[in-house]
Simulated assay, not measured.
Amino acid sequence: MRFARSLALGLALACAAPGLAPTARAQSVAAADESLAALRASDTRILSVGTRLAVANAPFCKSTENAIGMTLHHIGQYGDDAAARATFGFARDYAVLALVADGPAAQAGIRADDAIVALNGVELAPPPGELAEIDQPAAYRPVAWADARLRTALDAPPVTLTLMRGGETFDVILTGMPACRSRFELRPSGKYGASADGDIVGITSAMLGFMADDDELAAILAHEMAHNLLEHRKRLNDAGIQRGLMQQIGRNARLTLATEIEADRLSIWLMANAGYDPGGAVRFWTRYGKQHGKGIFSAPTHYRWKKRVGLFEEEMARLAATTTGQHGRVPPLLAAPLRPLE
Rank of each mutant, 00 (worst) to 15 (best):
D213W: 08
A218Q: 00
I220E: 00
A222W: 00
A222G: 10
E224L: 04
E224K: 02
M225N: 04
M225S: 10
A226T: 03
A226Q: 09
H227S: 04
L230D: 01
H232D: 07
K234I: 05
K234H: 08
L236F: 04
D238R: 13
G240N: 07
I241S: 10
I241W: 07
R243L: 10
L245P: 03
L245S: 12
Q248G: 04
G250N: 13
R254H: 11
L255G: 10
T256A: 14
A258T: 10
E260G: 03
I261T: 06
E262C: 08
E262I: 08
A263D: 03
L266V: 09
L266F: 12
I268Y: 05
I268W: 01
A272F: 14
A272G: 04
A272H: 11
N273A: 14
P278R: 00
P278T: 10
V282A: 07
F284A: 03
F284I: 08
W285I: 02
G289H: 10
G289M: 12
I296N: 07
F297D: 07
P300L: 15
W305N: 00
L311S: 07
F312A: 01
E314G: 03
E315M: 12
M316Y: 09
M316I: 15
R318S: 12
A321S: 14
G325A: 13
